[in-house]
Amino acid sequence: MELIGNLLLQAVQMLIVLALAPGLTGLVRKIKARLLRRRGASILQPYRDLARLMRKEVVLAENASWLFRVSPYTIFAATWVAAALVPTFAIGLHFSWTADLIAIVALLGSARFFLALAGMDVGTSFGGLGASREMMIGALAEPAMLLMVFTVALVAGSTELSNVVAFMESGEVGIRVSMGMALIALTIVALAENARIPVDNPATHLELTMVHEAMVLEYSGRHLAMIELAASLKLLLYMALIGCIFVPWGIAPATAGVGELVAGFAFFLAKLAVGGTLLAVFETSVAKMRVFRVPDFIGAALMLGLLGTLLLFVSRSL
């Protein structure tokens, strides 16, 4: 009986991230539109877009191979599994020990790997351009992310997110400079990984600085829907990650009852709303960077991650 309950909870977690992801994207778009004094589309628009794309036929380039057709599902699956392993409303779920934060980062790396391969499959110049830039950004963002993971793991004593959250919630941490640096580093990585301004512009299509959109240019129909859904999931994942490490309040403990779970869910929704708003405000207030200034931007995250780790040692030895 307990096993069934646990499995159910795990399934709820998987479905929640899937169901909320397009809504978060819609929310960010809506707030951005309002900040630009436009009315903007409804928050539900991404759901409608996905439904429409799903129903349409796929127009496949003549040269496309099976890899091009399999990749959307691979990318979606890797991102979904990664997103489902980040604590949202509760910790200690039945399978949360499957992969730690390092493995989650690597799963997102798998998704990026297949996305870049798919971009190169048709053999167009735009696809290759996107893939090459995406791999450059990824090559810098991934070590920055791992240094951030080191900082967090050194504070919390584990890379397992459930353990990290439990430790952070216990209030033993207090305010640390290192954690502040880790937060900034993670935010920069999140912006870069999700193709947000100032690294990439999710709204453009025909601009030479585009990265993500250039890779998925040849996709249409259900394939495009899977990739868009995966992109939304990734945004949600990073929000949930920042939420569970730096603002862990409200996440239900492993032995929680129904009440705590519901409260945890409400907290999670609130965190997403705040995070989405902050993202929209940030995106409207900065300009997009030239692509070769991006390494400086992510390099800052890399250095902050390293400094955070080193500061921990200094403060510990004092």
Partner: peptide
């Protein structure tokens, strides 16, 4: 305090990809 299960990750990815 950390664990990683390659088998489960494989099963999850294959299952969710295949099911979707």
């Amino acid at each position: 305090h950390s664990s990683y299960s390659g088998l489960l990750v494989m099963v999850f990815v294959v299952f969710s990809g295949g099911a979707s």
